[in-house]
């Protein structure tokens, strides 16, 4: 079927089987390798993308569901805004180890901070509990989110 959607800010039309998984479409057809796959069953969050600004799991979505929506992958997030600050906080706080969870985690953080700009430590942990990380023990990720939230608050003020 023909699916028309916005991909990283560009109007996109693809001809794809309606049941093609979005994670495959993005990785294999568009080369967006920042969309990781780890469990293929919606348990780990590595394949997180933003759909109309909200975090979604691309391994659980099918091509037909893309019709008319706005998809943002790690490659397409506007560098201005909170993205650069969250990325820099991840780097500075040492929140990146093997990095395989990182793109999905960063997108989940953007979604979280949009919904809750000043999350408590518990809210951060709850907000990221759908994204597994096997390397860090999460502590430095939580710290990075706190640092990013503080910087963003300063910028708004």
């Amino acid at each position: 079927m023909r699916v028309k959607f916005m991909l990283n800010g560009k109007q996109t039309i693809v001809d794809a089987p309606a049941d093609r998984r979005v994670v495959d479409l993005l990785r294999e057809d568009f080369g967006l390798i920042g969309v990781k796959e780890c469990c293929g069953a919606g348990e780990c969050g590595a394949c997180t993308i933003l759909v109309n600004g909200t975090s979604r799991l691309s391994c659980l979505m099918l091509a037909a569901q893309l019709e008319g929506v706005e998809v943002t992958t790690i490659e397409g997030v506007a560098p201005e805004g909170s993205f650069a600050i969250v990325q820099q906080a991840f780097i500075d706080c040492g929140a990146v180890q093997c990095g395989f969870c990182t793109p999905g985690m960063v997108l989940a953080v953007l979604d979280l901070l949009q919904r809750n700009p000043q999350p408590s430590s518990e809210e951060i942990r709850e907000g990221l509990s759908g994204n597994l990380c096997r390397c860090t023990g999460y502590q430095k990720i939580v710290e990075a989110v706190q640092v990013a939230a503080a910087l963003l608050k300063g910028r708004r003020a």
Partner: peptide, 23 residues
């Protein structure tokens, strides 16, 4: 001294290519 890891930048932008990312 604590120094940010040199690999963190390409990992946080999603650019880093793992073995899974070669097609």
């Amino acid at each position: 001294q604590s120094a940010p890891r040199a690999d963190a930048l390409t990992k946080v932008t999603g650019e880093e290519r793992y073995a899974t990312d070669y097609y």
